[in-house]
């Protein structure tokens, strides 16, 4: 067991081990959806929600099904299936209850299924041997960190619309450069706590 305080873990997963800025996971929707702050926030919430719950589900599956039966090596396929099923469930619920959000997220909600940040968090949890409480803190924190990064990027992109970007860099090029700069900035937090 890893003795980290869940609150420390929560803060670390936002600042020093941010899924996007430190691990570069979940880049596809990060780049594609960051055109508008409102939509980014919506997707960020969806990712946070899915991350928190899939981490819990996967923890329980791993701890109470896979470990007792010595089937740890099945974790990839089990995690992926449970994430896929959960996203599908969330999609149905969002479509019914929050049509505007559902519409804004469009194709991206199903894309969360293969968002590597989500599988990444579940795998980190297993590799780093977190407890249930730690896993929840880590999953939730990673989601918050992901949301923060995408909303920050959307804000920056809004400014970019009004500035002159060299032709060859427009679109994904400048986005990756900005992401790199943000990552450099976040490295400044690395003295706070290290969890890897």
């Amino acid at each position: 067991m890893n003795g980290l305080n869940p609150f420390v873990l929560f803060a670390a997963s936002i600042f020093t081990s941010n899924m996007i800025l430190a691990n570069f996971l979940g880049m596809c929707s990060f780049i594609a959806v960051s055109k508008d702050i409102k939509t980014s926030l919506g997707l960020g919430q969806a990712v946070t929600f899915v991350l928190t719950f899939t981490t819990v589900i996967n923890y329980l599956l791993y701890r109470y099904v896979l470990i007792p039966m010595n089937l740890e090596y099945l974790r990839y396929i089990v995690f992926i299936i449970s994430i896929a099923a959960f996203v599908q469930l969330v999609e149905m619920i969002v479509e019914r209850q929050l049509p505007v959000l559902h519409h804004a997220l469009g194709i991206f909600l199903p894309l969360i299924t293969v968002n590597c940040a989500i599988l990444g968090v579940s795998l980190f949890m297993v590799i780093r041997k977190y407890s249930l409480v730690q896993s929840v803190a880590f999953g939730f924190g990673s989601g918050v960190g992901w949301t923060m990064a995408i909303v920050a990027l959307a804000g920056l992109k809004k400014r970019l619309n009004e500035s002159r970007v060299p032709k060859g860099l427009r679109g994904a090029g400048i986005t990756l450069i900005i992401t790199g700069l943000m990552a450099l900035g976040f490295m400044g937090f690395s003295g706070m706590v290290q969890i890897s």
């Binding site: 099904v65 089937l71 089990v78 149905m92």
Partner: peptide, 25 residues
């Protein structure tokens, strides 16, 4: 064992999704 566990998990999730489709969907 492996096949049984995998079938169990997948079957359970499929059951939940079908249930959701019948109610929420």
């Amino acid at each position: 064992n492996t096949v049984a566990v995998m079938s169990g998990i997948t079957g359970f999730l499929a059951f939940i999704l079908t249930l959701a489709r019948r109610t929420v969907g």
